[in-house]
Amino acid sequence: MDNQITKPEDFFKFKIKDFAFRVEGADPGDFITYTESKCNGCGECVLVCTVNLWSMPKDAKKAKLSSKYKDVCMECAACYAVCDKDAIDFRYPNGGAGIIIKHG
């Protein structure tokens, strides 16, 4: 692995993408469904997402889901859990696709 961070003083500079693993080439399906019209702009999804899939554009009052979510999502479902307005639905990627936890 060329992304190893071996010096303890550099640990906190880690990039999540270098330490997350997923199945390559498998189709995860549309596992997050976002209904923008239900969004009230509270921004909790933006705060809770570790990999910044959700953003709140300055002019808009609605959250925006990254187009790259299928490649980056850590599958914690926290965005579903914090959305009181039911704007976010989450059902996990298709079987055999998505995140791999090697040392769970």
């Binding site: 190893q4 303890p8 859990a81 936890i101 090697k102 040392h103």
Partner: peptide, 20 residues
């Protein structure tokens, strides 16, 4: 003190995960 412990056990970051 965490970093010192990491040096003492030759710790290297290996994986990140998040769950509810």
């Amino acid at each position: 003190a965490f970093q010192a412990m990491c040096r003492a056990v030759d710790a290297e970051m290996r994986e990140y995960q998040i769950h509810m």
